[in-house]
Simulated scan of single mutants.
Amino acid sequence: MALQIDVDVGWATLVLNVVAMALGFAIATLTRLGEKRVTAITVEVGIQNGTLAIAIASTPTLLNSTIMAIPGEIYGLLMFVTCAGFAWWSSRRQRLLKA
């Protein structure tokens, strides 16, 4: 049961991360900020405040719930994977555009 909840939370946080990055990329691209700024904004949106979510959920004076910190913990792990994938894609895309 607990594993299924973690898997469900993992998928939800992954979708949240990818959708947020896609929106950041789309909006930055539509405003014609330039490749470097588009990449920076997309990564910044992708690496959001996972640590802040954990702190708020687990601090005794706030929510004091380790269970509520689980999404923040999973997001904190996934955000680096998705941002690394985006950085690789962006680097490759820039090289192809220059060629």
Results as ranks from 00 to 15, higher is better:
residue 2 A to Q: 00
residue 2 A to E: 00
residue 2 A to L: 00
residue 3 L to A: 04
residue 4 Q to I: 01
residue 4 Q to P: 02
residue 5 I to K: 08
residue 6 D to T: 06
residue 8 D to F: 08
residue 9 V to S: 01
residue 9 V to K: 07
residue 10 G to D: 02
residue 11 W to H: 05
residue 11 W to D: 01
residue 12 A to L: 03
residue 12 A to S: 09
residue 14 L to T: 07
residue 15 V to T: 11
residue 15 V to Q: 06
residue 16 L to D: 07
residue 16 L to W: 08
residue 17 N to I: 12
residue 19 V to D: 00
residue 19 V to H: 04
residue 20 A to V: 08
residue 20 A to N: 05
residue 21 M to Y: 05
residue 21 M to L: 06
residue 22 A to Y: 03
residue 23 L to C: 07
residue 24 G to P: 10
residue 24 G to L: 08
residue 25 F to E: 00
residue 25 F to R: 01
residue 26 A to S: 09
residue 27 I to G: 09
residue 27 I to W: 11
residue 28 A to V: 07
residue 28 A to G: 09
residue 28 A to M: 12
residue 28 A to L: 05
residue 29 T to S: 13
residue 31 T to W: 12
residue 31 T to C: 11
residue 32 R to V: 10
residue 34 G to Q: 11
residue 34 G to S: 08
residue 34 G to L: 08
residue 35 E to N: 13
residue 36 K to F: 09
residue 37 R to M: 06
residue 39 T to I: 12
residue 39 T to L: 09
residue 40 A to V: 10
residue 41 I to S: 11
residue 42 T to P: 03
residue 42 T to H: 07
residue 44 E to A: 15
residue 45 V to E: 04
residue 45 V to A: 07
residue 46 G to T: 03
residue 46 G to S: 07
residue 46 G to N: 04
residue 47 I to N: 02
residue 47 I to W: 10
residue 47 I to Y: 04
residue 48 Q to E: 05
residue 48 Q to M: 10
residue 48 Q to K: 07
residue 48 Q to W: 10
residue 49 N to T: 13
residue 49 N to Q: 08
residue 50 G to K: 03
residue 51 T to N: 06
residue 51 T to V: 13
residue 53 A to S: 13
residue 54 I to N: 07
residue 54 I to V: 15
residue 54 I to A: 10
residue 54 I to H: 09
residue 56 I to V: 15
residue 56 I to P: 04
residue 58 S to C: 13
residue 58 S to D: 09
residue 59 T to N: 15
residue 61 T to R: 05
residue 61 T to C: 04
residue 63 L to H: 12
residue 63 L to Q: 07
residue 64 N to H: 15
residue 64 N to P: 07
residue 65 S to A: 14
residue 66 T to F: 07
residue 66 T to L: 04
residue 67 I to G: 06
residue 67 I to S: 06
residue 70 I to H: 10
residue 70 I to C: 05
residue 72 G to N: 12
residue 72 G to A: 10
residue 73 E to M: 12
residue 74 I to E: 01
residue 75 Y to T: 00
residue 75 Y to L: 08
residue 77 L to Q: 05
residue 77 L to V: 13
residue 78 L to V: 03
residue 78 L to M: 01
residue 81 V to S: 01
residue 82 T to R: 00
residue 83 C to V: 01
residue 83 C to E: 00
residue 85 G to Y: 03
residue 85 G to R: 00
residue 85 G to S: 02
residue 86 F to Y: 14
residue 87 A to K: 05
residue 88 W to P: 00
residue 89 W to G: 02
residue 90 S to I: 13
residue 92 R to C: 06
residue 92 R to K: 12
residue 93 R to Y: 13
residue 96 L to A: 14
residue 96 L to Q: 10
residue 98 K to Q: 13
